[in-house]
């Protein structure tokens, strides 16, 4: 079953130069798709269009067989509830003035009326926050802390907990490990992998690190200068018909 389809997406910031040029992709239920490329290749722009942060110039995003451009209020709300995100910089992703518990509860409080959670159970705010912290392997005592009291890796775990708190169908991971130190990077990748096992959502994992993408994803897409060059299954990475640029990337790692 397809969770989301992107058809011929185009986006440009400067006239004459397309940041994303005619990209089509689809993500299946429970699948993680890796999107690899250098900085400036358009992968983050694509994510921003998907999340509705940027308006696309042309193309369509289809969710639940419905282009979200034509979605009514209710459908749009349903889309937002099912597409969550984790950004690169965990410090910027958490409001420094809010306790961890309040940041964690943000999506739940927003969507609580149309949620039917399977994995988590909401009995009280306190209990819900504890379930979330436990799921991302953080000590329960962190609920009442402020973000600056946590390490980078811990903060990123909090933003992951926030994204999974409403059991979305898709999480857009925009370079979630890029600003962490090596040991935290590995741990976060492992956590993301095991969360997918238990919760069964799909990932769009955006990264410049082909090896990290390889570790987490079943399918890999390669972008360069706004264009989608290559999409392949993980097992096919060493096939001879890979794009030259993909081979160049493989050679680096």
């Amino acid at each position: 079953m397809t969770v989301i389809e992107i058809h011929n997406l185009k986006k440009s910031y400067n006239p004459g130069k397309l940041a994303v040029n005619d990209v089509s992709l689809s993500i299946q239920k429970g699948e993680s798709l890796g999107l690899v490329g250098e900085s400036g290749c358009g992968k983050s722009t694509l994510a921003h269009c998907l999340l509705g942060v940027e308006k696309m110039d042309a193309g369509s995003i289809v969710y639940n067989e419905e282009p979200i451009a034509h979605a009514n209020r209710k459908q749009l709300r349903n889309y937002r509830r099912n597409v969550q995100t984790v950004f690169q910089n965990p410090t910027a992703s958490l409001n420094p003035k809010l306790k961890i518990r309040d940041s964690l509860l943000d999506p739940y409080l927003q969507f609580k009326d149309d949620l039917q959670l399977k994995h988590f159970h909401f009995t009280s705010k306190q209990d819900f926050v504890q379930q979330l912290l436990e799921t991302v392997e953080l000590p329960k005592g962190l609920a009442d802390r402020y973000p600056h009291e946590l390490s980078g890796g811990q903060k990123q775990r909090v933003t992951i907990a926030r994204a999974i708190s409403i059991e979305p169908k898709l999480i857009v991971l925009d370079e979630p490990t890029a600003s962490l130190d090596v040991l935290s990077q590995g741990a976060i990748l492992e956590l993301l992998g095991s969360l997918q096992q238990t919760l069964g959502m799909s990932y769009l994992f955006i990264s410049h690190d082909l090896a990290a993408v390889y570790q987490l994803c079943q399918r890999i897409a390669v972008m360069k200068d706004g264009e989608l060059l290559d999409v392949f299954r993980k097992e096919e990475i060493y096939d001879s018909n890979r794009h030259d640029y993909t081979k160049e990337l493989i050679d680096i790692f």
Binding site: V182, L183, Q185, G186, A187, A211, Y238, I250, F253
Partner: peptide, 13 residues
Amino acid sequence: KQLIQAAPTLPMR
């Protein structure tokens, strides 16, 4: 060993 483990690598490497 932990540092070596933490860095993801492609199988070929």
